[in-house]
Structures are given as structure tokens and as C-alpha cells.
Design a protein around this nucleic acid. Structure first.
Length: 756
DNA sequence: GAGCACTGC
């Protein structure tokens, strides 16, 4: 694990100084344990022992306290049943809602039965979110009475809290395990792999399910456990049936949280925001003490709702000072600075007068609060039944955000927040009939609503030959696959037969979109890899520009000072360089309305990418001539993003994307000083109108020179764009006497040669 | 002249 290049940071730990030698006369708690034949009584006896079988140390006091708490979980009573099932089956599907303790307890039971530490193997448990991986690992380390990072650890992108040869239970993010599979296709070092939260249907979990199903056939010694929160386990159960005569068993873990009363509206609500505000105020007027969690879709909606709730609540308070307490309304969404995000953990306000009614806290949040986050004091949940979700249109290659109905699983997850501290109530702003008949059972899989270029590259690297017939749990649209294959072919990551090229193999090693990986890898040829490294990192993080509602003009003015008129990509470079020159100063970012958090993240990513570049001998090169440098940077951009070029049409500032012929406009946040004839862009979003974001000027000769494959004019639709390109080709032919459209091919050939 | 819901490598 220590040579894993995706981990750039390794936490220092105090080594266990106690002797690890065991006393031969001492009775061993795991005596008589046969791997995978362990029974409930055996485990219970071992748990009550004085010595920790994994550290050979006496148990601490904390261990006993935690053990008593574990015994109260419903799953503790099911130990015998689970261990028997684990002994008898290779694959198990487990269902249990949040609060069932499955994430902490099942992996421990598996460790007791599988005994990975005596075989030199590891039990893995995947999580979609890194926060969950860290916190669950900490909890389980405490429960097993071991030091976090030794017998029990976690691996997430920037942190490896494991010890090679010692760690036998590892919680890791799903992407991490998928990355590992790229270089170890049978995941040999694991004896059991537990996929948790599979109902969330993240891209990585979906792919892992397919891979594991495949590996299970080749490795009968590998056990697989799939854990989900919904009732829709049948789909997973069916999917994992390897043979028709052996059925994958289902293990159910009951919930152990407080009861939650669920209410529905009689009629559908047309204005869910208005209904939500009304419901919050109704709770405030009529219900007992307890805080409220309201789910809305986005920043603007949340800020407006907070303002209205506050106004009305103040009115109520003034009219009925003796019966109604004060109310605070706290917005919560991802782009909020961390300090303001912390406010959701503040306690509710006290009474306004010494003996008056006590106050109430209302948290108005996006989906960010739906999973793996507990806000203390929440007793009431208001759920309008919608969230903003990403949708991908492969035809025009555009991702956009759309307000859509949530799934039943999501609705249940939202409701569960009402029962964390005591029994609570959930108000659903839709009818029970709609809940039962209209909402989808589970979350719409990410694989069906994403751009798949990165995933397809990973699959090919994993050795998957036939992407169309791959055993997906939900098959993506053929058009989405085709678009991905086409892009990877133009980028020279795949050859014309769909085989991985040497370049593609390197691209797959970068945790980046293929376009970004390509431009970074070729950038030494343009003598600007140092700068491209920065730009790539900056393009991998969310928007760094802050623009608070009441300080827009100040924010825009600050941004103007950092803007490079030649293009937004160069502006990103400038922002990062200034950030470093100002010693990563928090005040500097604050004064320039920049997100310290995003810049810090870009810096982390830059470090990680740099180490991967070093591994592949990709040199870091700079040019001192700034004019030349700026030009070369934009040429390198063309090598990755040639499919995202637009040409100006007429004088009204409209642009037409090449080949796709979409009418787009420069986003108002674009910092270009003029409206150049040709631009390259990073993102195409559909909001009030189609906009292109992060835009730089390019010269048409570069398009022909560095991506001749794509800019082969015979494949172009007739129109102004083609005519403009034709003029460039003619001019060039006149000047140079030939049309060198093969630079793209040449550079990849050069790279191929170097690798062999 | 206007927005990025949310994860993750």
C-alpha cells in the first residue's frame, strides 16, 4: 500500500510500544477457530475474553463499554445466523437501514470468521464517501480496541491510514478499490470484499459490482458481501446469482432508531417552496420543542426560503410572545464557506423572556445533509420530494442540472433524520399515492446519467474487451458508450480497433477526465508542463470564485484584477500562482473573493498529479518568455479539448460549437477581453440559455496542426465553420506547400516509442 | 450580464 501513488500523505502514528510476543502458556482467545467455520458462541466467548486476540494486549476499559453498546444492536442477536450464512455462501446480500449497525458490525464478524490476519489477507469494506470511510474506521478500531491505522484502517484519496502486513480490515472509498483493480484485476490481497451503500448506485460501486461478479467465478476463495439500505435488494440478489442452482441468500438487519411518524398531503402541492415554508411555520406554531430540517434544491431557493421563514416567524413571535418562541433559520449548501456550514451544529435559541417559550432551529439544506451527516436535535423533517440532479445528454455532450423527484429510498433516508435523537415526525409534501406509485424505488444510477469517457477508459484498462456486452447491473445508453469510445479514439487513448494504446494506459493512471490527462501528458512537448499541471489541478476543483449576494460588485472588481484577457485558463494559472506567492494566505484569498477551500484542494491535487507525472517520467518544463508560454499553453489545451471548440457567428456574440453546431454564448463570468473568432471551452452548461464556461482564445491553425484527425474537413458539415477552416488550410498549404495534419498522431507515436 | 445539487480517484 505504501507505494500507492494515489496517496500523497501518510499520517504519522505512534507505534505500539507494547510487546507483541504472546505468552505460550496463555490461552489464546481464537483457539479452535477454523477459518470460515467460526460459530456465534465462539465469537461471543472471544469477545468476553480479557486479551485482545489481534493485539495480544489486555482489553481497555473503553472496550467493555463499547461492547455493551454493541450487544444492544439487533444484529448482535443475529450473529449465529450470519456466521452460518457466511460459512456456507460465497456471496451474500444484506439489507438494513441507516442505524442498523451493519456498516460497523458486519465487517467485524467477517474478520472473526475469515481470520484474514493469519492468512496475510485483508477484508475490505467500501464506502461512497470519504467522510464515512474515516469515521466508521475510527469507530470500528475503537470497538476492536486497536489503534486506527494498524489492524483497522482506512484509505481515501489523500490519506492512507493502513499498515502493510498489519491492517486486516480496511474501509476505503469505492473509487479507491476500483483504482486498485486496474493494477490487480483479481484483487488478490483481499479475502472478503464488502460493498456498502450499493443502493446509492455511484459509478464506482456499479462497476465494482460487475467486476466482483466476474472475479467471483475465477476466485472461489473470494467472498463477497453486498449491503444496501432499500427493500429493492431483489435486483442485487438476482444480479449476483452466478449459477441457476445456487441462490444468493438475503440477510436482513432490522433498524434500531426511534419511531418516525410520516405525514402526507391530501392533494399534490403545486408550489413546493411555498408549501414547505407553510409547513415549517405550522410546525413552529403547533408542534412540541424540537428542530426542523427542510430539504430544498439549491442556493438561491434556500436563501429566499430562509428570508421568508424568518420574516413570518418574527411576525408570529411579535403577535404571540407568550406562546411562540424565537426561530433561527440556517441555510446549508456546499458552496457555503465551512465556517458558515458549522452553524448547523449550533443549538436552538433559548426563550426570549425568562419564562417564555423556548426557541427552535430550522436548517434549510440541499441534498448535502441527506447522507452520512447527523444534525443533533432534529425532530421534524420537511420533505418536498425533489432535488436537483445531474442529467447528461450524450447526443450534444452536455450535462445539466434539473429539479426532479427523489426516489423512495431517498425519501426514507430524509425521514430517518427525524429519528436520530428521539421519536420524530416527517412531513412529505406529496400524496401517499404518489409516494407509492410515482416515485422510483431507488436512486437513478449515476452510470445512466453521466459522461462515461473516464469510466470507459478505466474499463478498457481493466481488460474489458466488449464494452457493449459487459455485465452492467444497468446498461448505459449505447450512445453514451459510443460517445466515450469516439472521444478516446480521437484522443489516441484507444486505437481504431478499440485497444488501449500506450498513451491510453498512462492516461488511465491519472485521476482526471481523459481530456485533461491527455493535455497534461503532451504538455512537455509544448514546454509548459509545469503550468499545465497547475491548470489541470485548477480545472479539477469547483469554482474558485466567490460572489456573495450583497458584495457582487466588490467580488467582480477583485476578479478583474486577477483576470488574464487571453483566456480563463490563464486566469486560473495566475490565481494559483498568486495564491502561492502570497504564502497560501487565508486573508489574501478572502480579500480577493476566492475560495480558500477550493484553492487548497487544487494544491493537493497538484501534488498528487505531480507524483504520477514523476512515475511516468513526464518532465516539468517552463518557458521564461511569457508571451510564448501563454501561446504554448493554449496549444496544449487544444490537444485535449479539440472537441470543445466554438466559432463566432455574426456580430451578436453568438458562437457555434464545431461539428455539433450548437448555438452557445460566452458565460458572463468569462474574462476574455474581446470576442475572438475561435475559442476553446471547458464546460457547456444549459441554464437560462446555453453557455460555455472557462473559455480561451485559440488560433485555427492550431486546430488543424494538433488535432488533424478531428479537424479532417471532409468529415465536417457544410457551413461557415467549415469555410473558415478551409481558408486556414488553403493559406497554410500556400505557405508551407503541404498540410501537416498529423501532429497529433506523431506525438502519440513518439510517446509509444518511448514507453517500449 | 448570470449561476454549481452532491459525491469521488
Amino acid at each position: 500500500m505504501t507505494d500507492n501513488p494515489y496517496l500523497t500523505h501518510r499520517k504519522l502514528r505512534e507505534r505500539d510500544l507494547g510487546s507483541s510476543k504472546s505468552n505460550p502458556t496463555e490461552k489464546q482467545p481464537l483457539n479452535g477457530f477454523l477459518p470460515r467455520k467460526v460459530t456465534g458462541p465462539q465469537v461471543r466467548t472471544a469477545l468476553e475474553y480479557d486479551t485482545n486476540p489481534f493485539t495480544k494486549q489486555p482489553y481497555s476499559k473503553q472496550y467493555k463499554t463499547l461492547l455493551e453498546a454493541r450487544k444492544k444492536l439487533p444484529i448482535y442477536a443475529q450473529m449465529d445466523e450470519f456466521l452460518k450464512m457466511f460459512s456456507e455462501h460465497q456471496i451474500i446480500v444484506i439489507i438494513g437501514e441507516t442505524g442498523s449497525g451493519k456498516t460497523t458490525q458486519i465487517p467485524q464478524l467477517v474478520a472473526y470468521s475469515d481470520l484474514p490476519h493469519i492468512k496475510g489477507k485483508v477484508v475490505a469494506c467500501t464506502q461512497p464517501e470519504h467522510v464515512a470511510a474515516m469515521s466508521v474506521a475510527k469507530r470500528v478500531a475503537d470497538e476492536l480496541d486497536v489503534q486506527l491505522g494498524r489492524q483497522v484502517g482506512y484509505s481515501i484519496r489523500f490519506e492512507d491510514m493502513t499498515e502493510l502486513g498489519t491492517t486486516f480490515l480496511n474501509y476505503l472509498t469505492d473509487d479507491m478499490l476500483l483504482r486498485e483493480a486496474m493494477n490487480d484485476p483479481t484483487l488478490e490481497r483481499y479475502s472478503t470484499i464488502i460493498l456498502d451503500e450499493v443502493h446509492q448506485r455511484t459509478l464506482a460501486t456499479d462497476i465494482l459490482m460487475s467486476l466482483l461478479k466476474n472475479i467471483a467465478r475465477k476466485r472461489p476463495d473470494l467472498k463477497i458481501i453486498v449491503m444496501a439500505a432499500t427493500l429493492n435488494a431483489l435486483k442485487f440478489q438476482k444480479y449476483f446469482n452466478l449459477r441457476s442452482d445456487v441462490k444468493v441468500p438475503l440477510f436482513k438487519v432490522p433498524r434500531s432508531t426511534h419511531p418516525i411518524e410520516v405525514f402526507y398531503t391530501q392533494e399534490p402541492e403545486f408550489d413546493y417552496v411555498e408549501a414547505a415554508i407553510r409547513t415549517v411555520l405550522m410546525i413552529h406554531r403547533a408542534e412540541d420543542q424540537g428542530d426542523i430540517l427542510l430539504f430544498l434544491t439549491g442556493e438561491e431557493e434556500i436563501e429566499n426560503a430562509c428570508r421568508k421563514i424568518k420574516l413570518e416567524a418574527d411576525d408570529l413571535l411579535n403577535q404571540n410572545p407568550d406562546s411562540i418562541g424565537p426561530l433561527v433559520c440556517i441555510p446549508f449548501y456546499s458552496s457555503l464557506p465551512p465556517q458558515q456550514q458549522q452553524r448547523i451544529f449550533d443549538s436552538a435559541p433559548g426563550p426570549r423572556t425568562p419564562n417564555g417559550p423556548t426557541g427552535r432551529k430550522v436548517v434549510v439544506s440541499t441534498n448535502i445533509a441527506e447522507n452520512s451527516l447527523t444534525i443533533n436535535g432534529i425532530v421534524y423533517v420537511v420533505d418536498p420530494g425533489v432535488s436537483e440532479q445531474k442529467v447528461y445528454n450524450p447526443r450534444i455532450r452536455v450535462e445539466s442540472l434539473l429539479v426532479s423527484p427523489i426516489s423512495r429510498a431517498s425519501a426514507q433516508q430524509r425521514a430517518s433524520h427525524a429519528g436520530r435523537t428521539r421519536s420524530g415526525k416527517c412531513f412529505r409534501l406529496y400524496t401517499e399515492k404518489d409516494f407509492k406509485n410515482e416515485l422510483e424505488e431507488g436512486t437513478f444510477p449515476e452510470i445512466l446519467r453521466s459522461n462515461l469517457s473516464s469510466t470507459v477508459l478505466q474499463l478498457v484498462k481493466l481488460g474489458i474487451k466488449d464494452l457493449v456486452r459487459f455485465d452492467y447491473i444497468d446498461v448505459p445508453a449505447p450512445e453514451a458508450l459510443m460517445r466515450a469510445l469516439e472521444l478516446l479514439n480521437y484522443l489516441a487513448a484507444l486505437d481504431d480497433d478499440g485497444n488501449l494504446t500506450a498513451l491510453g494506459a498512462i492516461m488511465a493512471e491519472f485521476p482526471l477526465d481523459p481530456q485533461l490527462a491527455k493535455m497534461l501528458i503532451v504538455s512537455p512537448e509544448f514546454k509548459c508542463s509545469n503550468e499545465m499541471l497547475t491548470i489541470t489541478a485548477m480545472m479539477s476543483v469547483p469554482n474558485v470564485w466567490l460572489r456573495p449576494n450583497n458584495q457582487r460588485r466588490e467580488a467582480d472588481a477583485a476578479k478583474a484584477l486577477l483576470t488574464v484577457p487571453d483566456g480563463d485558463h490563464l486566469t486560473l494559472l495566475n490565481v494559483y500562482n498568486q495564491y502561492v506567492q502570497n504564502q497560501y494566505d487565508k486573508n489574501w484569498t478572502w480579500q480577493h473573493y476566492l475560495s480558500q477551500h477550493a484553492l487548497q484542494q487544487a494544491d493537493n491535487i497538484r501534488t498528487q498529479l505531480k507524483s504520477i507525472m514523476e512515475r511516468f517520467d513526464i518532465d516539468l518544463i517552463s518557458l521564461s518568455d511569457e508571451k510564448k508560454l501563454y501561446q504554448n499553453i493554449r496549444q496544449a489545451l487544444v490537444c485535449g479539448f479539440f472537441m470543445q471548440v466554438a466559432h463566432k457567428e455574426g456580430d451578436k456574440g453568438n458562437y457555434l460549437t464545431v461539428k455539433d453546431n450548437q448555438v452557445v454564448a460566452l458565460h458572463p463570468s468569462c474574462g476574455l477581453g474581446t470576442q475572438p473568432e475561435w475559442v476553446i471551452f471547458n464546460e457547456f452548461v444549459l441554464t437560462t440559455c446555453p453557455y460555455i464556461l472557462t473559455v480561451s482564445e485559440v488560433h485555427p491553425e492550431w486546430l488543424i496542426e494538433f488535432s488533424g484527425n478531428y479537424f479532417d474537413l471532409s468529415s465536417f458539415p457544410n457551413g461557415e465553420t467549415k469555410r473558415a477552416l478551409q481558408r486556414v488550410v488553403n493559406k497554410k498549404a500556400g505557405k508551407m506547400g503541404r498540410n501537416d495534419g498529423g501532429a497529433n498522431k506523431q506525438s502519440s507515436k513518439k510517446r509509444n516509442k518511448r514507453k517500449t
